[in-house]
Amino acid sequence: MNKPSDTGHRAEGALTRRDFIKRAAAASALTLSAGALYAGLYDGRGPQPGDLGKVLTGLGDFSVQTASGQGRMAIVRGADRAAMLERAVTALGGIEAFIQKGDRVLIKVNAAFATPPSLGATTNPELFAAMARLCLAAGAASVTVTDNPINNPESCFALTGIAEAASLAGAGLIIPGEGMFSPLTLPGGKLLVDWPVMAGAFKGVTKLIAMAPVKDHARAGASMILKNFYGLLGGRRNVFHQKIAGIITELSLLAKPTLCVLDGTRVMLTNGPTGGSLSDLKAADTLIVSTDPVAADAAGLELLERTISEVPYIRMAEAAGAGHADYTRLNPVRINLGA
């Protein structure tokens, strides 16, 4: 039965089959056009930075496995950075536990600013040189140092004293160049997607050492080991400043360092990360050396007089599997050399 309607009468302007088909066809066409337009305009890969090649998923695992599988840490009190470093490394089993003959070592320093070492905004050149010499003494085939300060890298390495220190210690200096950056997409990453990272500096590298000062950071709360990996990013990385905790968390998964050296000899308590006044610095006379970057930062927070809740990326990095926020679980060796 084909009843025109249940009620038996037809209202003016009611739908005919032809109207319905027309409208359904128009709506479908609109839907498909919108979808097709979106799909056509969507750039899933993003722009390719500099030297192309395959998209990386990380910069490597340079960690040294211990028998227990547990991270290690030494906290040394003193004023002589080189002596403190030596004692810390000895306490962790000696440099040979980390660097073997023939290793090619990359030291990632903080050389982000063209400021003198006295202002404490960058890795101390004497401490860096001491680390480079330890590696070479252990038989490392090469030691190189790098960072990617966006503004005038040559000037940054020169003024921080790191270029001269590298030269004196026999280490090579890698100045970032456009061809050294390759796109990287961190598995599961939301921010590190097709982003240029300084992969060229890692070519042939077998060990990675991260060295940073303990500093206040206006945006992140603190700048230590994990934040220092920001210097491996290329491009207009300031787009990440609004998601600073998220990007540092992803950076914690970018590479697993062999050793982390966190310099709290003088701590930038205020106006970081650049500082500027010597009154921004406070002597904390402490050097933290650890295989666990998250634990190193967590210990550094105490020098910075901050709590872990004030610097959210540390717990986020722990949750991501980059290390331990409770650094006491590493049973740190504590040494006092006297100030």
């Binding site: 084909n2 025109p4 309607s5 037809r10 302007g13 009611a14 005919t16 089959r17």
Partner: peptide, 17 residues
């Protein structure tokens, strides 16, 4: 569409969908 929709060809209108 023919049966279940109860639509009619031509100018006649129906009152329900």
């Amino acid at each position: 569409l023919s049966k279940p929709l109860r639509l009619r060809r031509g100018p006649k209108r129906i009152t329900s969908v």
